[in-house]
Design a protein around this nucleic acid. Structure first.
Lengths: 233, 233
DNA sequence: GTCTATAACCGGATAGAC
DNA sequence: GTCTATCCGGTTATAGAC
């Protein structure tokens, strides 16, 4: 997955319609056949447009995948925000959000691998070491900010500040595991989530302990540096 | 990067030669021009063989990249083993090995991204959640076993058992960072290495403390499970 | 049976006419 | 905004040479 150029702006209502048609067709095919078998030609044909026209709206196959990612991301944020209203403890909140993420992605397990190969690409919006510039990623981390903000757990402010990013990173790790998980209904991933959330909760308490302060300070300084990494080339 | 079929065995001396020629030509071109610009046709042309012949020895462009990875990996193991003879503390040993890894990869920074996009592919030998089956990966972890084995730091045996895998995972993370690092001479990566090794050393001591036993036990059980994950599809 | 070559296929991407 | 024609490069089929 390469960094994407912008897709053509849709200036007219008709264009908007065509674009939406192409995207939904692509999603259907991706779900049915997986990534490789879903050729741009097949998408165009099924959507009843020419190949060239498909490229007019999505400048690459990647753009289509990005668009897919946006969609699942929005879905996830929406259901998560609802769920968060029902939970107050950090642990319960985190558990909900992560489980919902996997629930959201579930229909696309077959081809999700391709999506996250992206994380290794310096230009990807999922790049874990990039500045906050990519909107998807910023939004994605924002969810974890909300998650942390409204919990009343006693967490030192230095840790609290970095926790959203750390949890986002953790969630990326879970997704990576899930991609590889071929157990029935991805049961292993859900088990892993239960166990890791439990552990994380304990580790956060531990790290909040005053006598951990020096190590914590040092670790957090590192994390901040990691994050504010200049990726511009 | 897809999982690779086996390349044709080289049965004759001449074949061996041709194969080596193609590989070294590919490496040159990759270093000169990067991944995309190094087409199979260009490799074949520069090596003075036909396209079909190149494919006889490397059944895909991927295979070529894998072969490259093997080569840098062997280089790294070799220099690391030498370096390890000079260091006894865990911290110094780890620092050497990780720095040398980046040194080894340095000439290929330009196109390394492609290489590690692979890690997200369930069939990749770099897959962090696969069984130990892939030889490259097993060997790769073996280096960290050697690293840990001959250090006399007081580490509880449960942690000691998982430490090689954990350090390998850490080293993969460093590589991921390095791929994204466009600072001059990748200075940021080297700084990150210094800082993280320092921190890891402290964390290992901390985790070795008897009062950490419950958390440690729990975390290690998780790690073992993570690792012995059945990837077969 | 191992090598080597040529020709073709396929799918992502682009150019340019309408 | 839409199309057709074309490029380009990974990959495959296949046939002849050692």
């Amino acid at each position: 997955m390469k960094s994407g150029k912008k897709s053509a702006g849709t200036k007219t209502a008709k264009g908007e319609q065509t674009k939406a048609l192409i995207l939904s067709t692509a999603l259907e095919l991706l779900q049915e056949r997986g990534y490789e078998a879903t050729t741009m030609r097949a998408i165009a044909a099924k959507a009843g447009v020419s190949l060239g026209n498909a490229y007019h709206y999505f400048s690459s196959k990647d753009q289509l995948i990005q668009a897919f990612y946006h969609r699942t991301h929005s879905d996830h944020v929406r259901v998560s925000l609802t769920a968060l209203q029902k939970e107050s403890s950090l642990k319960a909140r985190l558990l909900s959000v992560i489980r919902l993420k996997i629930d959201t992605l579930e229909p696309y397990h077959e081809f999700a691998g391709v999506l996250f190969q992206t994380a290794a690409d310096p230009h990807s919006p999922l790049n874990p070491f990039a500045l906050d510039s990519a909107p998807v990623r910023r939004e994605s981390i924002k969810l974890f900010e909300d998650l942390v903000a409204e919990t009343k757990a006693r967490i030192p402010s230095d840790l609290r500040a970095e926790l959203p990013y750390l949890l986002w990173l953790y969630h990326m790790g879970i997704i990576l595991f899930w991609i590889h998980d071929s157990s029935p209904k991805q049961a292993r991933t859900y088990r892993l989530i239960d166990q890791t959330v439990d552990l994380l909760d304990k580790l956060i308490s531990l790290a909040s302990n005053p006598f951990m302060r020096p190590v914590r300070k040092r670790a957090l300084k590192l994390v901040a540096e990691l994050k504010n990494f200049e990726t511009a080339v």
